[in-house]
Design a protein around this nucleic acid. Structure first.
Lengths: 124, 124
DNA sequence: CTTTTTTGATTACATGTGTAATTATAGCGA
DNA sequence: TCGCTATAATTACACATGTAATCAAAAAAG
């Protein structure tokens, strides 16, 4: 499952709606992004095309309408991005990064509980 | 302290050596990166130039040798990158991101302790 | 069957990025 | 003083990206 394609910022937006639910037609995607972005439908078509070229998406043609589905998993892409982000911005130092995030954002009591649970698992 | 310039992946590498110690001449930077990268000195000069144009770096000319220093702080840049990363890859959901990282990497007992401490501070 | 519409494909185009080579120029050594 | 050298500035160039407009072809409408 390596050889993940590089997915750009805009492409991530498109991938997310397809990861949420697939298959999806171009129009589905356009509809889903109407609220979130101000992109023209053509722009979204272009992004879909590029993602197919990159082999991040596949499609099934039903007549001349394409039903797109992911060829890569969100988990895998997130993992790859996370690694390179950690390396680039925090020089690979996980603990400072996590501390930084924890300080940055406000967390609810439940979130803190959940994180503590994850930590406990790691700790044992 | 907003209006942070967009710093590319390669530019981050250069910024890091200047954040580590400044001011630094172009040659200092070239020397520092010799081990880490395979870039030609010209490439590094180009990156320094672009960073000056972006106002991420300033310099003091001593004769015709420039001594570069950061105009933006690593903390601020890291914060900005972190936010956009979190948004893009984890849809802004902090807890899943943190869990993901915790599962991804192996942590030493000390690191786990440190994180627990940070969590405790947040929790109180 | 012809026209319009829809939908994907192709082309566009400015800016960013990775990665330099080339050029101009200010000092330094001869 | 004059050419060589080190250093910054300018130019290069292919590929990525954001953001579409246009084209072609198939399907739907009349």
């Amino acid at each position: 499952m390596r050889n993940l394609p590089g997915i750009s910022v805009s492409e991530w937006v498109v991938m997310r709606v397809i990861w949420d639910k697939s298959p999806r037609t171009a129009n589905d995607v356009v509809g889903a992004l109407e609220a979130e972005t101000a992109w023209s439908p053509q722009t979204i078509k272009t992004l879909l095309n590029r993602l197919v070229k990159k082999k991040a998406l596949g499609y099934e043609a039903n007549g001349r309408i394409y039903h797109y589905y992911p060829l890569v998993q969100e988990e895998d892409c997130a993992r790859a991005e996370s690694r390179s982000f950690l390396e680039r911005v925090y020089r690979g130092a996980l603990t400072p990064m996590l501390s930084h995030f924890l300080e940055l954002e406000k967390l609810s009591a439940e979130e803190i509980e959940e994180l503590r649970r994850v930590l406990d698992e790691k700790g044992s």
